[in-house]
């Protein structure tokens, strides 16, 4: 069975187990969502002494993780994105980022992938609010190979970090040879007519859009950003200088996240027309992914349309 035949959350649990095999200081923390995160039973059974359940108490989980990190442990704390980011925003801000402690916060079921849990659980803001926190790195891996590489990097780097974790199985974008560098964007495909910037869950949809656009005579420079912070500005600016148009797509509010980062950099370094795709400043709701893509305009066909319009090839 290839790695990409697994659910993303399974790879999260499997990789934590491998990291614990190599380093007994790696600790898995959960807040009563361990089955949802993929660490139960995997980590619970393989490394019971390195598994800590805080119960439905996310704030305490973050504080405990900060205390563990202050003693040299490498805690990975998971919960749904809404609880791992906005619910514990002050705990992560002060006890982790401000204190500069080596805590890894993992937000599961990002954006539309929270589907059936609906508006209360569907966070479109976590990339934005984590990105504006000093000291934090913010990652959003798009497939199992990248997830595994990102987790290995997180365990090795002494660095407060927030990572989005998609839970279900997703199509592979990369393969076993993938390596992760938070300072570098990944050029998924090279082109000259338009730049398409994606992260996390939207990257495989963006890749489909690029394939369709190729058939329509539109050549896309597709940049995937596994790290929204730090953000590889040089690659974006170089691409924008060639294509003169940038489309961004993210499984988030269009305010403050990936699209926000792109606009900040381009407006200062290489003013370029930008179209941001994502959720236009609205809350989530109980709905299918297809419904939400259509409602908010960030599915494959919307990516195709935005790229053609900005490239002047309608």
């Amino acid at each position: 069975m290839a790695l990409h035949d697994n659910e993303m959350r399974a790879v999260y649990g499997m990789t934590l187990n491998q990291l614990m095999d190599e380093n007994r200081n790696v600790v898995c923390l959960e807040a009563d969502l361990s089955k949802a995160s993929g660490t139960n039973p995997r980590v619970v059974e393989a490394h019971p002494d390195n598994f800590v359940n805080a119960g439905v108490a996310e704030a305490d989980m973050i504080g405990v993780a900060a205390g563990l990190a202050s003693e040299g442990k490498i805690p990975f704390c998971a919960s749904f994105t809404c609880f791992a980011s906005r619910r514990v925003y002050d705990q992560v801000t002060i006890s982790v980022a401000y204190a500069n402690l080596n805590v890894k916060v993992v937000g599961t079921a990002p954006g539309v992938t929270a589907g059936p849990n609906g508006g209360t659980h569907m966070s479109f803001q976590d990339l934005a609010i984590m990105r504006v926190m000093p000291n934090m790195h913010v990652y959003s891996p798009c497939d199992v190979y990248e997830l595994r590489a990102v987790l290995r990097h997180m365990a090795a780097a002494i660095q407060p970090t927030y990572m989005q974790l998609i839970r279900p199985k997703v199509p592979a974008v990369f393969d076993e040879s993938y390596t992760f560098d938070p300072e570098s964007a990944v050029r998924v495909s090279r082109g000259d007519d338009i730049t398409l910037v994606s992260t996390g869950y939207m990257t495989h949809f963006a890749r489909h859009a690029v394939e369709q656009l190729a058939g329509q005579g539109v050549s896309v420079d597709h940049l995937h950003y596994p790290s929204v912070k730090p953000f590889d500005a040089a690659t974006l600016v170089e691409s924008a200088a060639r294509t003169d148009g940038v489309v961004t797509v993210e499984n988030q509010n269009i305010l403050g996240g990936l699209g926000g980062a792109v606009c900040e950099i381009l407006s200062e370094q290489r003013p370029t027309r930008v179209k941001r795709l994502g959720v236009p400043d609205q809350f989530g709701e109980v709905a299918s992914e297809e419904y939400l893509f259509e409602k908010h305009g960030f599915g494959v066909r919307h990516i195709v349309q935005a790229c053609r319009e900005l490239a002047g090839k309608v």
């Binding site: 504080g63 993780a65 205390g67 563990l68 990190a69 705990q91 002060i94």
Partner: peptide, 22 residues
């Protein structure tokens, strides 16, 4: 431990105590 936002230190202390036991 860096503190200042009230209510967070006891969790941090519990984490440090857990690390000591580990």
């Amino acid at each position: 431990m860096t503190t200042g936002s009230l209510g967070q230190g006891l969790s941090c202390a519990a984490g440090a105590a857990l690390a000591a036991r580990m």
